[in-house]
Design a protein around this nucleic acid. Structure first.
Lengths: 213, 213
DNA sequence: GTCTATAACGCGATAGAC
DNA sequence: GTCTATCGCGTTATAGAC
């Protein structure tokens, strides 16, 4: 008898994971089309050719789908923000690349952006694990911003933490306004999308980040 | 026969309006407690001692309740933003008072703030009339910010419209972060609530708004 | 004409038995 | 995996009461 490459268990498990990925992909398409809160458990099942109760084999509840998307969203966000190539550039370059990375994450993942930063789903509270992931990634982003500013060697009128938070608030504000006003336009275009560079300049000028270089 | 102070029609109408106000008040309490999207039509009826279908005498749909709150929200917001006493002060004072007015509106009306600026309700689209109100108030706020900056007589690195939009994005960003992180703390306290003045200073410094006075 | 109630429909999330 | 069933929601139809 020929040895199977995968045991029956392994094959089942792989199929299971494939279905999970499919569910998440369908869920994201729905959220992008109709809004985060419009996610429809039954409709996901129908699109998979399943009966709604069968979906419970893959996710314990609708909230569990949100939770997994929330968790993965923060992981992707963290990778984008914290593994930028420009982590070696000048403070100004770092600020600019952080700003762009943030806005582009929002533009490319409107659904996750809303889910992660706006909590539009009544009753949805991230699990402890997802919450830990989220807090960790945010803290790291804030720390990197602070480090970039510290590297500038200037004396800021605020603490490093406050400076980082000001940048975060501005990134969020510009991105959210852009997505609300011109969701179809890429970063760099549209009433607010165009403001990214000006927003960075604001910090650079106010904090004199490129005094000498 | 004694003339009634109010005709039957007038009395009915007045009662009708009182119930409408009560419905809106209950709706706001619900939204504040459970999130904007958690508004529950049936539960409103129950709190009024009515059967759910009876509520349709007062509002044509659940969406109509959202719409009225949205419209009123923008009217209140406009009054707060556009009728500040400091409309006569220096540009710096005006910027600071606009920032505070914005943040305080958000803090005192968390529910309306979300409904107006974040659209957390799937399927809810403001009626044409409410939309007009909203756009009008926003344009006026943006115009006033631009006017205050023009009054400063400085040469900005951006157009007046862009400058106003940058301020709007920052006001929104700081307020939303504050409400997400420390909803219970008033403006001026908490991780982001404390940043209001620093945010204003950023614009003042970068744009040299108080060169001489 | 204005308010309210009862009954009923369609749909979504979900639990349980198979 | 399915089928059946329950519950709550927004909503409509309809009819009686003021």
């Amino acid at each position: 008898m020929i040895e199977p490459i995968l045991t029956r268990r392994q094959r089942q498990r792989r199929q299971h994971e494939e279905v999970v990925e499919e569910i998440l992909a369908i869920a994201r398409r729905m959220m992008q089309a109709e809004g985060v809160a419009a996610l429809n458990f039954n409709a996901i099942a129908r699109q998979l050719g399943m009966q709604p109760p069968s979906l419970y084999t893959y996710f314990a509840s609708k909230e569990a789908i949100y939770d997994e998307l929330f968790r993965r969203g923060y992981l992707t966000f963290g990778q984008r923000m914290n593994q930028r190539p420009a982590a070696t550039g000048s403070p100004v370059e770092q600020l600019r690349s952080a700003f762009l990375a943030y806005m582009e994450f929002g533009y490319e993942n409107r659904d996750l952006f809303e889910l992660m930063f706006q909590r539009p789903v009544p009753g949805f509270t991230p699990s402890a694990e997802s919450m830990a992931v989220s807090l960790g990634q945010l803290a790291e982003a804030q720390r990197q911003l602070g480090a970039a500013l510290a590297q500038a060697g200037v004396t800021l009128p605020v603490s490093l933490e406050e400076a980082g938070d000001l940048v975060i608030a501005m990134m969020y504000g510009v991105t959210a306004m852009h997505l609300a006003n011109n969701p179809e336009l890429p970063v760099g275009e549209g009433r607010f999308g165009r403001l990214a560079d000006h927003a960075v300049d604001l910090f650079v000028t106010a904090w004199q980040l490129e005094r000498v270089e």
